[in-house]
Nucleic acid binder design. Structure first.
Lengths: 352, 352
DNA sequence: TTGAAAGCGCTAACAG
DNA sequence: CTGTTAGCGCTTTCAA
């Protein structure tokens, strides 16, 4: 017992050497135990300066013995760096945010960065509240994500730290955004359907006011036009639901022109379409080939047959965003819009 | 220009008064501008001590003008409190962790707490790495979540800060855990099926080695026994997939005893079951009533008809965990296992 | 009512 | 090679 225990409450329990359940060891505890000064401890622990091997070793084992963990708040205070970033999901954490966050968290964790999670729930007030909090905590940078790809106003202007937008993008062209190449993904879907011999391709998708729906629909039509063809009928805009997929499929199938493929704006829609197609007595993919979008495993694999789908590679996108943020924090910003390619994952709904 | 700008790089852009894009304002900047001492600023900003109204006002407007945000690292350093908690998802962030995290984040945000996100991905090494990081950052407490309800070894012993387990629980009875009452949920499902007149009830669920599967199966059997009945055949253990649901349903339907209801261990399984039941020419719920578990919107609502399902109220569970953690941080710990009731959500698969 | 000064835990100069 | 000292930004006595 070299230290007086203080009066912080005496919970017994298992302890790591001197570090009882109460106060975490500080650098001067280590110094005292090793019989050196705090400066020496700092050098030993950070490998700075030049010390006798014996001293260094003595310090290290003292630190070990006390279970010493440097207080990051103190480090932050005089380095000006917190090794912390904020991640704001502007709309609720959901199916799209998760892989993004996981990718980002992964890349940042490797860079010794900790991540503050902020769920703004589509509320601009909450968003600004979180922004202030993060600035107050002096995070080194911020990642902004959302569930829609549509550009949004910047979360702040003239901020003292870099910001990277992931999946969503900023309306300010100078801001750094990482977005999926949805148009390219739609083109890949069409190319694939053409490659497996389909010519009468319909498109069923989400609401017309939804950015992704219009982008994907336009890209599909363009790609077909480049091939000297056109969509079999105008795109059917509706909801992002299985139910709409079922309804829309009925409409498409009852049309006079016999279609041989349907490209859907989402896997949920595609799944509804699949059910309706099968109910109509047609076979997938023999009579009607089907391509979805999102490659949402539970939908794509639960479907019968499993769905060919466009994967936006959200985890990679999150990782990229994190890397760009780290670079920007390091003084190497990459302003502007960065596009990530989509992958086409081929499964039973198009493979004959 | 009362301050020399420093040499931190002269990005122009919009600024908040003096606070150019570079160094955030400190308390002494405010003091200088207001013509008072830093101590006075501190008091004015925190409403401590007694100041002349005029002085207080002058300080406040100076702070406002500079866009001053107190540096939390400095506050943490001499208060010993960081107003920060860590949230460790032991297995990958997924369908179960999200509502938990959202609930917790919500409750904590209201308490002015920021949340560190740590995804340990089922890797004990990563888990310990994150634990050390969090301790080094001097978080005030930790929430541990996971995708399984089974008890797990404590994440650490003799930790200097409180830990609350959410959804999963700790094998140490003294640790604070918040778990859903899965058995109670299963009982509610059975009660409901009995109430709508079903007597020959089968059970299809996930792997036998999965804690939730066995708990729910046992509770269902118990409840039926209490009603003087039994399950129509032994529980069918398999996978948590639609595919297994389809297979198992075929087995159940081909049996000699005509069943009139199936209680499923998950909505995914229930959905597969629904497809197979309909394919067999039977009607839901007229011939066979169906209850799922999890109330996973996309599965329960995508099913035809929509599924009656047991909801574990994960968001509430996360919120409760956060509240218990806040209490523990405040010196009012609630050791032991806390159980949260499940709700039964009735939909078309049982409502005739 | 206000100011001066000490100190939270750590790092980085500068002496010795 | 090691110790001393001055801060980082803020709060909190204690004097004035």
């Amino acid at each position: 017992m070299t230290r007086s225990g203080g009066t912080l409450g005496g919970m017994p329990g298992r302890k790591t050497a001197e570090t009882a359940g109460n106060r975490p060891a500080t650098i001067s505890d280590v110094a005292r135990l090793a019989g050196v000064s705090v400066g020496t401890v700092s050098k030993a622990l950070n490998g700075r300066g030049s010390l006798r091997a014996e001293t260094r070793h003595r310090v290290l084992s003292a630190a070990e013995q006390l279970g010493f963990q440097p207080n990051k708040a103190a480090v932050a205070l005089n380095s000006g760096r917190t090794y912390t970033v904020g991640m704001i999901t502007t709309d609720t954490i959901g199916r799209f945010s998760i892989p993004l966050m996981m990718g980002a968290e992964d890349a940042l964790g490797a860079g010794e960065m900790s991540v503050f999670l902020c769920d703004a729930r589509d509320d601009p007030i909450r968003e600004q509240y979180y922004l202030r909090t993060l600035l107050s905590r002096r995070v080194d940078g911020i990642i902004v994500t959302g569930r829609r790809t549509q550009a949004r106003p910047p979360i702040g202007t003239g901020l003292p730290i870099p910001v990277v937008y992931a999946f969503i993008s900023s309306t300010d062209k100078g801001d750094c955004s990482v977005v999926p190449d949805e148009a390219g993904g739609a083109a890949k879907a069409i190319d694939h359907l053409l490659a497996v011999g389909r010519r009468r391709i319909a498109h069923i998708t989400g609401p017309e006011h939804h950015h992704s729906a219009t982008v994907r629909a336009a890209a599909a039509a363009d790609r077909l036009a480049e091939a000297g063809l056109g969509l079999a009928g105008p795109p059917l805009f509706g909801e992002w639901s299985e139910n709409w997929g079922r309804q829309a499929a009925k409409i498409v199938l009852s049309g006079d022109n016999e279609i041989d493929a349907i490209f859907c704006g989402s896997d949920q829609i595609a799944r509804g379409v699949a059910d309706a197609v099968r109910a109509s007595g047609r076979r997938i993919p023999e009579d009607v080939a089907l391509v979805g979008f999102d490659n949402w495993d539970v939908m794509a694999l639960g479907s019968q047959p499993p769905l060919t789908s466009v994967d936006m590679d959200l985890e990679k996108l999150g990782r990229t965003a994190a890397e760009l943020l780290l670079a920007a924090i390091g003084g190497r910003p990459s302003p502007g819009r960065h596009t990530n390619p989509c992958r086409l994952v081929i499964r039973g709904s198009t493979a004959s």
